[in-house]
Design a protein around this nucleic acid. Sequence first.
DNA 1: TAGTGGTCTAGACCACCCT
DNA 2: GGGTGGTCTAGACCACTAC
Lengths: 233, 233
Amino acid sequence: MTLADTNSWRGIQTELLRRINEREWLPGGLVPNEADLAQEFGCARATVNRAMRELADAGLLDRRRKAGTRVALHPTSRVILDIPIIRLEVEQRGAEWRYGLVESRVTPAPLALTSRLGLPRGTEMLHVTGLHYADNRPFLHEDRWININLLPMARDADFSQVSANEWLIQHAPYTGGDIGFSAMNADARLAELLDASEGSALFVVDRITWDKDTPVTSVRLSYAPGYRMNTKI
Amino acid sequence: MTLADTNSWRGIQTELLRRINEREWLPGGLVPNEADLAQEFGCARATVNRAMRELADAGLLDRRRKAGTRVALHPTSRVILDIPIIRLEVEQRGAEWRYGLVESRVTPAPLALTSRLGLPRGTEMLHVTGLHYADNRPFLHEDRWININLLPMARDADFSQVSANEWLIQHAPYTGGDIGFSAMNADARLAELLDASEGSALFVVDRITWDKDTPVTSVRLSYAPGYRMNTKI
DNA sequence: TAGTGGTCTAGACCACCCT
DNA sequence: GGGTGGTCTAGACCACTAC
């Protein structure tokens, strides 16, 4: 298929994109309706529909029944982040990955956590902390709480052999989650673990995953100074 | 439509999701083909196709011609971030937005930037810095370089009235971009501007946008301490 | 109420790859 | 070779909503 092919939905999408990008269709402007475009491109309406629907999903077009399709005024850019297993992320950087368990024990979860997860106060959870290394240098600190009521077999897992990160992907399905990205100053303990100086700015990812309404795990990943998460629009 | 409706692609998708989440279909396992599922649900194959295609796009299914469809082994979680105009982000938090220009002048861009953008060294660019406020408190610092060869009218824009962020969205179409998220310690100047203490951990977004192969703008957004970017999986 | 997008169908042909 | 998903068609009905 060449880009000029206008019988395929990809070809049509490319052409529509061109008209948007080159301001042939102005932001806020009305676009011909599906039937007309189908006629212009000599294809079925469903084909035009698929091309336009994806552009609308991407936020470049606003579509409403009866009102028609318009070029979006504020193309909010939509960024897609693929969050891989930490081991793979390290290995993709060409470094050797290693995991070191710091601590693993069952203990009542702090109030802030149980209330956030909607669990009774004082609920016992499995608290696992460890370090991921890249070429033997600390890469990130993983501080995780696991819902052992939902995952009783987590008690018997040996997190000195398999990182909690990977164990959970294998054993704990989830249906959704909340993620937050922020920056924090390293406290004394974290600085020591990450081989950084106290107060260093750390990139932090907080993540809670749910299986329907039941919390599965809550984790805070604190990356060693200098970490950068990259992606494309 | 109820969730049990299996004549609509959404209903079918919900049912497929259930079978995946509840391990009725095991990770790595082969799934019935489209024709069989269409018969089971009493619908056209195209309807099943749409439901499955979206799950494959989301990374939950692996589909290959002839090989069939399998439940993905490693559902790499895919996070979608919507990056809005800064003004809207502030206003969505229920705060009043204000922009204050710090500096705007045409000057040769630093070598690190021109080489990153693929421009000749010493190329003149428009350097605009300013602060976005939320309820009169510094929210983020915007440090931006604009390609005035591509956008000569940027010279005449009054960035004390309109933030460069919004001006560009109105005037500069782009086809792609690179984004990086990181954490940095505030230096003395940034700390003063953001009303923070020196060394505070700042959440930083670096972004370069391109129009095909031509750089449009490069910007660094440094958020005041405490900022957190949230989203869902 | 009429025009637009949203969806579904039954069928067809094709591209790809061989769990 | 042959089975599978990828796509396209022509038509239909429906849901929504601007007018």
